[in-house]
Design a protein around this nucleic acid. Structure first.
Length: 263
DNA sequence: ATGGCCAATATGATTGGA
């Protein structure tokens, strides 16, 4: 069972690149972020033709998340609880029947939060608090749970090419990293770091300034696992080559393999 | 040495991203 996350930076601009990648990496479940379109204009058939079921929580111009799954999508629920005034499409959760029990998956697009010190950063921190409360509640189910997406958080100095360059940025501020650790304290496991101590594992390179050519990257896309999912973790990876391909997103896919029998 | 981009929008400039 392979589960991936990919911030596509406009799904319509990424159809060809995604189709190539889906055939090559063959994930069973994919969490997408920044689809940048409303539900009605999501290119469903491009993915249905490859055997995926599609769930979309879209928004015009900005944000927007989706889940693709080769297995049936049940109990699809948009929005993170506790944000009555929050009209951004940044969260979509689904229960997936695998044949070997259920798996709960959420596609997460955590706010960027820049510039710090203003209401955008407050929104980010509040969103992280809401995510922690919801995750705590989901963890009570004691089931395989994967919270995958663009967290807009650089967890540690090992996850950025030059920590100095990101000092003071909303993605790397101590308060941001503290709230990310609070997710880990609940029992959620950062799948990439559970399988590798390697430095230089990045999921994002800016379009500007030749960042990819210089490998000036950051690791901000994460798959966070409940203990029941982490127990089944057998592999994880980042598809860095996607950043060098035709019409790339500024993010690349990250994925995990879980030892869950497919039926 | 410095700086360099991309996507969406009734668009030819602005906003947001990270």
């Amino acid at each position: 069972m392979r589960i991936a996350t990919f911030n596509v930076n406009s799904v319509k601009q990424r159809i060809e690149a995604m189709q190539r990648w889906l055939k090559e990496r063959a994930p069973d479940i994919v969490c997408l972020q920044e689809i940048k379109c409303v539900d009605e204009s999501f290119p469903r058939s491009a993915f249905e033709d490859l055997g995926y079921n599609v769930a979309v929580h879209g928004q015009k111009t900005y944000n927007g998340v989706a889940i693709l799954s080769k297995f049936p999508l049940d109990e699809v629920a948009p929005k993170l609880p506790g944000g009555e005034a929050d009209d951004h499409a940044r969260y979509l959760e689904a229960v997936i029947s695998t044949g070997a029990g259920i798996l709960r998956v959420a596609s997460i697009y955590l706010p960027n939060g820049n510039p710090p010190g203003g209401e955008k950063y407050q929104y980010k921190l509040a969103w992280m608090d809401r995510l922690r409360l919801h995750a705590r509640s989901l963890l009570e189910n004691e089931e395989p749970l994967v919270l995958a997406g663009d967290y807009n958080v650089i967890p540690s100095p090992a996850d950025v090419y030059d920590p100095k360059a990101w000092e003071g940025d909303a993605l790397f501020l101590p308060a941001t990293r503290e709230k990310f650790r609070a997710l880990e304290y609940l029992g959620l496991v950062d799948a990439l770091r559970a399988t590798s101590d390697e430095a230089g594992l990045y999921t994002f390179w800016d379009y500007q300034a030749g960042a990819f050519q210089k490998n000036n990257g950051i690791r901000i896309d994460h798959l966070m696992l409940s203990p029941q999912a982490a127990d089944k973790l057998v592999g994880a990876g980042i598809d860095k080559h996607m950043r060098g391909g035709e019409k790339p997103s500024d993010h690349v896919p990250a994925w995990i393999d879980l030892a869950i029998e497919k039926r």
